[in-house]
Structure formats: structure tokens, C-alpha cells
Design a protein around this nucleic acid. Sequence first.
DNA 1: ACTTTAAACGATAATAGTTATTGTTATCGT
DNA 2: ACGATAACAATAACTATTATCGTTTAAAGT
Lengths: 129, 129
Amino acid sequence: MRTRNYSRKREAVLEMIRSCKCHPTAAWVYHGLREQFPDLSLGTVYRNLVLFKQEGTILSVATIDGQERFDGLVDPHGHFICRTCGAISDMDVPAALSRDMAAQRQLQQCRVDRVDCTVYGTCAACLQH
Amino acid sequence: MRTRNYSRKREAVLEMIRSCKCHPTAAWVYHGLREQFPDLSLGTVYRNLVLFKQEGTILSVATIDGQERFDGLVDPHGHFICRTCGAISDMDVPAALSRDMAAQRQLQQCRVDRVDCTVYGTCAACLQH
DNA sequence: ACTTTAAACGATAATAGTTATTGTTATCGT
DNA sequence: ACGATAACAATAACTATTATCGTTTAAAGT
């Protein structure tokens, strides 16, 4: 599946993002890896996130409170974002929806890379204070 | 339709956003109003954008290249974002499908404020270099 | 009209997330 | 082993956004 050979730290950054469901920030990845790599630099995390984004290995989901949130799951799916606590969780997107949206634009000579569906609201936990 | 009475500059910021289709940044609004209000401060633009967002008078569409993009049209609709030039244009979203997305979450005791559908890709103009 | 009170603003400083730079270290191919 | 290249840490730089503060404007009440 993976075609390139990543360095240990690069690999760890990717694995960190893939192995959690929290759609983390750069800082979260950095702090989570400090134990395993005490000499890890925040710049390395950012550098690799940019790289992974360019490769299409990860996705940028949204930026919440000024912080970019990433997703290691690149298969088509949607997100629910709680505006109160900032939690992001995955959702199903009806295939008809993304098909319809993509078709709309393809008719207008655009190239479509991705259809992103996000529901904004308040999660159950935050609703009960 | 409008219930509050806005100051002249506040009104102008809102009108600027409503009267364009470009889903502008704060800086774009600021520069566009400098002719009419030579003493306008960038802080005022930001201050009012925050206010409008809180009121629900405008929406935050996305942040592209680190800059937040706004939309004066609050009726349900989707967006196409060209990753090359950053242009944002409006799209139709099948009502039944956004209802489906909302229902998915409401079943899980969440409050749903908004269903956002965005297509990422490359616009026709950018495709022909 | 005059005063009082609060809101809105301009100017500017501060914050914070992200990106760029630079010198060093590790990795890979030969 | 040696040279070339990629990856890194440390740190500085950048930039969008937010906060502060003193002043001005507008509104409300008398």
C-alpha cells in the first residue's frame, strides 16, 4: 500500500494520525510523540504534515479555533464537528450526495478531487453541559 | 428583515459581504471599503465579522491559505473551492441529502446547526492554465 | 438643547499557528 | 568508505487574528 520508504519520525507522525480517531492538530501529534522521540521538533511535524497533504496521504478536515485538523482516513466519509468542544467524528455520506455534487461541477468543466460533507452542531455530551 | 440598527461602518461591512459573490477575506472587505471610508480600521472589520458570525448574519465558509472566507448568503447551499486559485462559488445541495446527514446525527442526540457540503477541485479557468 | 452613558472606533500591541532558514546529522547508492 | 541527498532540530520570521486602550461618536434620558 505504501510505496515510499519513510524515515522513522515521518513514519511515526503518519502512524499517530492514522491510529487515532480524534482528527488531531499538529500540536497534538507533536506532544503525543515526545515520549517516544524526546528530541522531536515541532517543525518536523509541520514539515511532514505538509508533505502528507501534498501526497494525499492525509486530509485537512477543517480549521477550528485557528488550528488545522487532520485526518488519516482518506476514504470518502463526512464529519460532525461540535462547535462547543471542537470534537470531530466521522459520518457516512450518502453516495448519491457526493455523486450529485461532483456531477454538478463536472458539467461545468471543473476537475473534482473531493466532496466534503460536514455537519456543524453540538454533540450530545456538550448538550448536557 | 434586519432587526438591529447598525452603525454606518458596520452596515457597510455587511453590505460589502452581501453584495459580492466572491466569499471574501477580511482583508478584501477592508481594502474594498477604504475608498468610501478612508479612516476605516482593519480591527473594525475583524470586530464586525466576529459579531456577524455570532449573530448568524454571515457564515464562515472555509479557511484557505490561512485566511478565513466569509459568506453573506446564509440560506442552505454548498460550495465549490478551486485549490489552484482559491475561488469559491455556490452550489446547490439536494435538500433530501442534507436532511439525511442531519438526521444521522440527530438520532445520536446531537443538535445540528448546519450541513456544509463543499467540493474541492480545480475550476475550468485554472484547468486551461 | 444639555448631559450622561454606552457603544464603536482607530491605532497599535500582543498572540499564536504556521512557515522558512540554517547548520547539522542521518541515510542511501556507489 | 565516500559523496550526495534527504531529514532533522533549533530558532527566527511571518502573518492572520485578537486584545487593549484611549478617543470619538451616537444614543438615551432629563
